[in-house]
Design a protein around this nucleic acid. Structure first.
Lengths: 259, 259
DNA sequence: CGCAGATTTGAGGGATCTCAAAAGGGGTGG
DNA sequence: CCACCCCTTTTGAGATCCCTCAAATCTGCG
């Protein structure tokens, strides 16, 4: 669809040639979930975290306000909304249990986005300065923080990127796959997920119009890759996450689009 | 062009309503450049950094290889290339003096991308473990590291995002604006910049075909927003960065596209 | 000088947007 | 409990933007 190759860069010189890449070792099934639990436990023990129950639409922090706290998600799902310089609002990320909120505020001293709860959940507020103090004493904490930031850098990039280079149908499929995978990694069910976003919001996140999202979902349903729960088009049944991945792959093939 | 509004989220409840956003305070003109210099100095003093001169095409690190070092850019320009699960290569970020390379490797224990020099330059290799040790003793260093990571999170997001939601011409304009701004913040000239990427690479970064990039550049040149140096279409003259911003803004207007 | 790769430009087609209308769902008040 | 309204969602038809394919030009280099 889009440019699939980049111009070759001259071959490496000097002593910089590195050994061939090695396949990435995936986390064991539930290891990720356990690490999250361990980090949360550590935080609760070493710091006076402030637990806050939030409801749909609550704003955890707001772009432009002075940075002070980081927040770690204990439960619930959150959207990160960025106000672009030209005034448009844009959903830029989704956050689940174990993810940190507000990391983008460290550098500027102000939050760079809004974090909004998409359902009832609990976040823990952690004053950044106190966290730093604790990190200096507890190496594990520092590692956890750095890991979270690093994950943010790599993860957000990947999800945004697939999204920017895929045709519309595949974008929506990949979005569902990403959501399901995020739940799965945290040990939650994925055969039936509740999208807590309108078609317009999904479209905003994916760079599509709401009509395109709707069409794509209908198409995925026709192809039996997903199903809709009776009575509610926000509930999506995903009998097989692999089928979603396969659909995305298929749409990248040269002679795609016929179906 | 794309969905410009997102569905309204229910109004905030509970005690979570925050004060109205405050405009972001921009850095003083050369403050950014000075902070970079200070950080580099600090690193050189407190750590045994290994300085490495690199040339065009040299790979600083490679996706999949075991993570060990972070790299900080002293000079030169670098591209971060991500190999997507489906095998496509994608330029995902550009890095300039003061930026860190390899941050995405901390979480996974392996680098998640390639970093490739786009011209001759110098990077400093810093073993991550040694850096952590130094950070524990030198609070300034820890702050610098966190600031860099935070900047990565916010910056990469913004640049990728504008890129994903703008029409083709504006994408290219915004790309040039971003490049010029990055140079300006580091105290370098921006009236004449040398793109060290082919049209294909730019297109890959922006999610466009090389033809679209070429057409966009021609259009920008016709509109006198940019100029080409005699004899070399890789040298771009930007007499006025503001004109680029204005061009981007204009293309977002409802009745755009006429010209 | 001639070749290979990069760039420009044009023509046509396809994917997605825009506009529009109708159908569905959920909540409120009678 | 039902009617009504509003918002969301679906679906269609036409317009538009960008991609694809193709050919010519330019640039740098051996």
């Amino acid at each position: 669809m889009y440019a699939s190759t980049i111009a070759p860069t001259p071959a490496p010189r000097s002593g910089w040639i590195e050994a061939p890449a090695i396949a990435q070792a995936p986390d064991a099934p539930q290891q990720f979930s356990r690490r999250i639990a361990a980090t949360l436990k550590l935080l609760a023990e070493k710091l006076a975290v402030q637990r806050r129950v939030v409801h749909t639409g609550d704003r955890i922090y707001q772009a432009g306000r002075e940075f002070g706290c980081l927040y770690i998600v204990n439960s619930g799902i959150y959207k990160i909304v960025s106000l672009m310089p030209d005034g448009r609002e844009q959903v830029v990320a989704l956050k689940f249990r174990g993810d940190w909120l507000g990391l983008d505020g460290i550098a500027a001293g102000r939050y760079g986005s809004d974090a909004i709860a998409m359902d009832t959940g609990e976040v823990w507020a952690i004053p950044y300065e106190a966290l730093l103090e604790a990190c200096l004493k507890e190496r594990q904490l520092l590692n956890a923080l750095h890991e979270a930031m690093s994950r943010d850098i790599a993860g957000e990039r990947d999800s945004l990127l697939s999204v920017c280079t895929l045709p519309a149908d595949a974008r929506v499929a990949d979005f569902l796959r990403y959501w399901a995978e995020s739940l799965a990694k945290r040990g939650m069910r994925t055969d039936q997920i509740t999208l807590r976003m309108t078609r317009a919001e999904i479209g905003n996140y994916l760079g599509l119009t709401l009509e395109s999202v709707s069409r794509a979902l209908s198409k995925l349903a026709r192809a039996r890759v997903i199903g809709f729960a009776a009575k509610c088009r926000r509930e999506v049944e995903i009998p097989d996450v692999e089928a979603l991945s396969a659909f995305v792959q298929r749409s990248l093939l040269p002679q795609a689009s016929l179906q």
